[in-house]
């Protein structure tokens, strides 16, 4: 289970890639080059990265409206993701889905989702399929603190618990659902407590520590593959940007944001790798450069790609 040097560097690089990707999306959105709604994952990268490092080919993830990080961590093509966000034909969904619907089912990525909480039963279903097909696959559902108040959360956990489905429910508790702080939207602070009601293990971890996320997921995935059923993992984290790009964030204080920025998962893991002498300052700079180049290429790819032909409006409604 212990990671080797290359694997640790890869975790770091992935987080940097997600960060750079999203900062770039943020920039183009503010310039009016990206339509629709964009929800950024900046600050929460350790969750997707630590979780997905445990997954293999036959596994599935179900994501949320804040899904770029999940896709990248699962190994999706950043070129196709960027093109999709720009609404271009070479995007994952031919430009028909946009930021909130990026998906790559073949990669085991069941899609970002515009409906909060929709992923939970979908992930249970994918886990059911894996179990039914006896392929040892697991599925993971990412969902927010706000989503844990949807009926789908309760129904999916219950179903998964009675059917012992190989699913890991990964709660990204960033303490807000749009403007609603957790203390205003639920009478508990640790969503892991809700596991008790479904008779499954619930653990609460530091979601800004990629190794903590990695370890907890490794155990939950092991448990799921062994046939012991679902787990709820609560990752405490924070989004640095507003709920969506353009959100005036009147509901939280500057001070709170700054406190959390100090716990930024990327410099934190970077500092540890430096301390351990697994990585050097030069390597950090090299990763930053490499990631920047990759994202520039993704943007160039997206910008080069044409908009979809109007005929595309009518295709893909049904299978042929």
């Amino acid at each position: 289970m212990a990671l080797d040097k290359e694997e640790m560097l890869e975790l770091y690089r992935k987080m940097c890639l997600i960060r750079e990707f999203e900062e770039t999306v943020s920039k183009f959105f503010s310039q009016g080059q990206i339509p629709g709604f964009v929800h950024l994952y900046i600050g929460e990268e350790a969750v997707a990265t630590g979780v997905c490092a445990n997954l293999v080919k036959q596994d599935f993830i179900a994501s949320t409206h804040r899904g770029h990080g999940h896709g990248i961590a699962r190994g999706a093509s950043i070129n196709k993701m960027m093109a999709e966000i720009f609404g271009k034909v070479d995007g994952y969904c031919k430009g028909k889905g946009g930021s909130m619907h990026i998906a790559d089912v073949e990669l085991g990525f069941l899609g970002a989702n515009g409906i909060v909480g929709a992923g939970l039963p979908l992930a249970a279903g994918a886990a059911f399929a894996n179990k039914y097909l006896n392929n040892n696959g697991v599925s993971v559902c990412f969902f927010g603190d706000g989503a844990s108040n949807r009926a789908t959360f309760h129904e999916a956990l219950n179903l998964a618990s009675i059917w012992k489905l190989p699913v890991v429910f990964v709660n990204e508790n960033n303490m807000y659902g749009i403007s609603m702080s957790q203390e205003r939207h639920q009478n508990i602070t640790d969503i892991a407590d809700r596991a008790v009601a479904y008779g499954i293990p619930g653990v609460s971890i530091d979601g800004n520590d990629v190794m903590a996320v990695y370890e907890a997921t490794a155990e939950a995935v092991k448990r799921a593959r062994a046939g012991a059923g679902p787990t709820l993992i609560e990752c405490k984290t924070y989004r640095h940007h507003g709920h969506f790009e353009g959100d005036p964030t009147v509901y939280r204080s500057e001070d709170e944001v700054n406190q959390w920025k100090k716990k930024d998962p990327i410099p934190r893991f970077g500092a540890r790798l430096l301390e351990m002498k697994i990585m050097t300052q030069d390597e950090i700079a090299a990763i930053a450069d490499e990631v920047k180049r990759e994202i520039e290429e993704a943007v160039a790819f997206a910008q080069r790609s044409p908009v979809p032909a109007v005929e595309e409006l009518l295709t893909d409604v049904y299978c042929d």
């Binding site: 508990i188 407590d193 619930g202 653990v203 609460s204 370890e215």
Partner: peptide, 14 residues
């Protein structure tokens, strides 16, 4: 509610 709920048989103390 630490990881011992997962790696051992500790119960969640809500």
């Amino acid at each position: 509610k630490d990881i011992r709920r997962l790696v051992a048989h500790a119960t969640v103390f809500d």
